[in-house]
Design a protein around this nucleic acid. Structure first.
Lengths: 289, 289
DNA sequence: GTCGATCATGAAAATAGTTTTCTTGAAATT
DNA sequence: AATTTCAAGAAAACTATTTTCATGATCGAC
């Protein structure tokens, strides 16, 4: 946001009528962009001449151009995910909704920025050739791991998700070089996950880490490294944004895998859905109502 | 995108000069929005009069308004990935990434649109007063339920998530009127989840459903109804978008709850984090490396 | 195939919108 | 108090847009 910001900044240095105009613009920008210069003059208590001059001082060649720029700014303001918002005590509900929405959107777009196509391709091929896939993750990352597990078995991959540290190690202990081990940890510093992935690496499995962007211990044990965006403000409110980001990576990975080997996986995917439909028909249920 | 789309659609039914104008607009929309009507007339090979009339047929009152709308559209086109994208065979990887990103963003913004503040407020208060919270959900919805479970126990709520149908019923059978039961199902037609929520309702618990928008069986057994956006195209690719949407609702619910009763829940939240930190210190780990 | 009606189209007139000029008067400076 | 400076609006000049009107092309009817 540049014009409204600029106006805000210069507000003190403006003269009477310019000030009135500026204030009107700041308070009613959406109405302003719909008006003619004469209407705006009347509404803001200034005159067309003043407005015309005002526009030039804000780097627009003329009033229509100024209106356009302002309109564009307003659209971008509402349509692009903005700052990560922090949530504090007793915010009105609509602000909370807006803040969470903004955070999630931001989290996803930022993660997309950080996705490395080459690593992604490596990951996809590794998954494709894996005879078994182990997923390690604790707490929220454990849930993400389970989600990936659900997806992988839909396409007939031998996968398993472990959040129990003993089971993680138990499974890692029997992994082979034909298998893939995936360690998921937002911080990249969860000891249990690190142990398990390291063990898998030592046994020759292809290791893959999914962590926040930046250096961390988990990636050191991973041959393929995928990242989520790492910005997270305020207190860690249940890792909401990071969970969204990690799921986003998972989705890209899974969809990439399916798309890359369409003929193989899509029939399996379809079959898995049809089988579930068949045995748990919702229609049968509706009658019981 | 509505104007450019509309032009594209009507293209065949347009006359010579209108057609020329339409084609110019489709091919050079960004230049067009910077021109005066006379310039555009010259560039597109039509006349000001034709353009002025043309604008009216596309539901703009006058040419400047038309330009504004078009400009707004162009900004939105580039700043927010809009449509739900379907993923097909052998898409280049970057397109898959773009498509998934677009779908997730859309899914979240659409769900925000559909959130009912009043229902949300009811849900928050119900959760606050609940002495026990049961969560029912199968497959992907089971994962979402588990995520909510993780969050709730962080603030000391007696919660439990069930995806096993027998366990769902077992738990529902002992629920009381002081408790809250939450049924999660994207379709709203998962028989097991419906059974469990219905059972909870019959025993006098406050029931809450989270489903896609629109009529479905699960909501019939819920006193409080929350919805996610219901648009999902192509084959059900692992319910990715719907899972994001449902998690989004969960996050809003949880954050709303915490924010509404800040003094009570925030200390608990902090304590739960600190305790986890204390017993699984990442620093200790880094040395072992 | 000819006549008549319809209608797209642009020239130009009318109108609307914007900028510039010019003047005034208020504030600041000497 | 006189002079300068300059914000600011009235109004003129100018630009942009719409509407009117005349023309000629196209289409259908006979």
């Amino acid at each position: 946001m540049s014009i409204l910001n600029a106006i805000q900044e210069k507000l003190d240095s403006l003269h009477q009528k310019e000030r009135a105009l500026a204030e009107y613009l700041l308070n009613h920008p959406r109405q302003a962009v719909q008006m003619t210069i004469t209407e705006l003059a009347a509404q803001s208590g200034s005159s067309p001449a003043t407005i015309s001059r005002f526009c030039k001082t804000f780097h627009s060649h003329n009033f229509p151009e100024f209106k356009q720029k302002l309109a564009t700014e307003l659209v971008q303001m509402t349509s692009t995910p903005n700052q990560y918002q922090d949530i504090v005590a007793g915010n009105p509900l609509h602000e909370i909704v807006a803040a969470i929405t903004a955070n999630h959107l931001r989290s996803i777009t930022d993660t997309t920025q950080v996705l490395d196509q080459a690593q992604l391709r490596l990951a996809i091929e590794a998954l494709h050739h894996a005879s078994r896939i182990d997923l390690y993750g604790s707490a929220t990352s454990g849930i993400v791991a389970q989600d990936f597990f659900h997806k992988l078995i839909q396409i007939g991959k031998a996968a398993a998700a472990f959040s129990d540290p003993h089971l993680q190690l138990t499974s890692a202990a029997s992994i082979t070089r034909n298998d893939v081990a995936i360690g998921i940890s937002y911080s990249g510093e969860t000891p249990e996950t690190i142990h398990a992935l390291r063990c898998a690496a030592e046994r020759g499995a292809t290791t893959l880490s999914i962590t926040r962007f930046g250096a961390n211990t988990l990636t050191e044990h991973a041959a393929i490294k995928l990242f989520t965006s790492s910005a997270e403000v305020g207190m860690r409110r249940g890792d909401m944004a990071s969970r969204m980001a990690t799921l986003h990576v998972i989705d890209v990975l899974f969809t990439g895998l399916v798309s890359e080997h369409f003929e193989l996986y899509v029939p399996r995917l379809r079959e898995s859905y049809q089988t579930v439909e068949l045995y748990t028909s919702g229609k049968e249920e509706r009658k019981t109502k």
